[in-house]
């Protein structure tokens, strides 16, 4: 009985082999071994995923298979590639500056062709083109977005926040303090805190010599106060938080630093404090103990411009339980 089954099995195998050889012949008629057409969609897509975006656009018309697959696995827009073609540069010769304007049609066509774009990293203000005047969102699947804020974005931001309230994971918004009021800064961050899907927030400052702009103490005070009292309660969902802030005095630095302990979900915390020149040599006392409620913290970075961090911070890190395995980076500038 067992033998019979064995024989049957062998026969079947032989038949199957014949069938597969036949298929090979018919396939070879259509797809020679050295033709790219021999590849199925899965492998073809995998190979094409290594093309640059510019090549993707050019090769879209190679064949129907390429058209179907070439944009599928592109997930990231880089400034250096096609994106710069989206910008129409208008040079103003008399003044040595230029304005950037978005090529709307191009962006729209791109939004349609690249459904899987999840990340944009660009140094020009793109919000006004992602959100149209009718509050329509052109790129719908972003998970990472970084861009410099401009005051004119005030009306567009609500639509953006509304669309992305659950899906945006990482957001970086660059502010220019000398061009905006504290109220606006606070309003924008409060608004973006409605994006509950967000896990990473970066708030960098624009410009290097921030103190030259004479930002008034009241603005600084209001923003510091907001970060300590409201911000830390608005963002319980953050895992990574990077803040670049102007502080006039060392109590301000301490307050901001200590208030972070209310964001208990944090894994990474990076502070960069811009302090004025008169704080040079001044010791700012911050202790890891005040961050002890952050039980999941693995990365801590504190950078203090013009001030000195008290060395006991380093000493106490070794003895402190929670931060003992924390990667700590201290810039004692």
């Amino acid at each position: 009985m067992a033998e019979e089954e064995d024989n049957e099995c062998q026969e079947l195998c032989q038949k199957l082999q014949i069938v597969s050889i036949d298929m090979k012949f018919t396939e070879e008629e259509y797809y020679p071994k050295d033709s790219f057409d021999r590849y199925g969609d899965d492998l073809c897509e995998e190979i094409l995923s290594y093309l640059s975006l510019e090549d993707c656009f050019r090769f879209e018309c190679l064949s129907k298979q390429w058209q179907r697959l070439v944009f599928k696995s592109q997930v990231c827009l880089n400034v250096d590639e096609v994106v710069r073609k989206l910008i129409i540069r208008i040079d103003i010769k008399s003044r040595s500056e230029w304005f950037a304007k978005i090529n709307w049609e191009a962006l729209e066509s791109m939004g349609k062709k690249l459904p899987n774009i999840t990340s944009i990293d660009i140094n020009i203000n793109l919000l006004s083109s992602i959100v149209t005047e009718n509050n329509e969102i052109l790129l719908k699947n972003l998970t990472h977005f970084r861009y410099p804020y401009e005051t004119s974005d005030g009306n567009l931001l609500p639509a953006f926040v509304d669309h992305y309230k659950n899906s945006l994971k990482s957001f970086s918004i660059v502010f220019n303090w000398d061009l905006m009021s504290a109220e606006e800064y606070i309003h924008v961050l409060s608004l973006t805190s409605q994006m509950k899907g967000m896990r990473e927030l970066s708030v960098p400052l624009n410009g290097t010599n921030v103190w030259e702009h004479n930002i008034n103490s009241h603005t600084i005070h209001s923003i510091v106060h907001y970060h300590c009292e409201e911000f830390v309660n608005q963002w319980p969902h953050l895992k990574r938080y990077r803040l670049h802030l102007l502080c006039k005095t060392d109590p301000q630095v301490r307050r901001v630093y200590e208030s972070a302990n209310r964001m208990i979900g944090l894994r990474r915390l990076e502070f960069m404090f811009e302090t004025p020149l008169d704080l040079i040599g001044h010791k700012v006392l911050v202790t890891p103990k005040s961050l002890s409620p952050l039980k999941r913290l693995t990365h801590l970075s504190i950078c203090l411009r013009n001030g000195v961090l008290d060395e006991t911070l380093l000493d106490s890190i070794d003895t402190h339980y929670v931060l003992s395995r924390t990667h700590t980076e201290l810039n004692k500038d």
Binding site: S35, F59, S63
Partner: peptide
Amino acid sequence: SCTEVREMLKIHNDF
């Protein structure tokens, strides 16, 4: 160019 690539990878243009 597209023509070059079609020739190189022996891709049949079905457009």
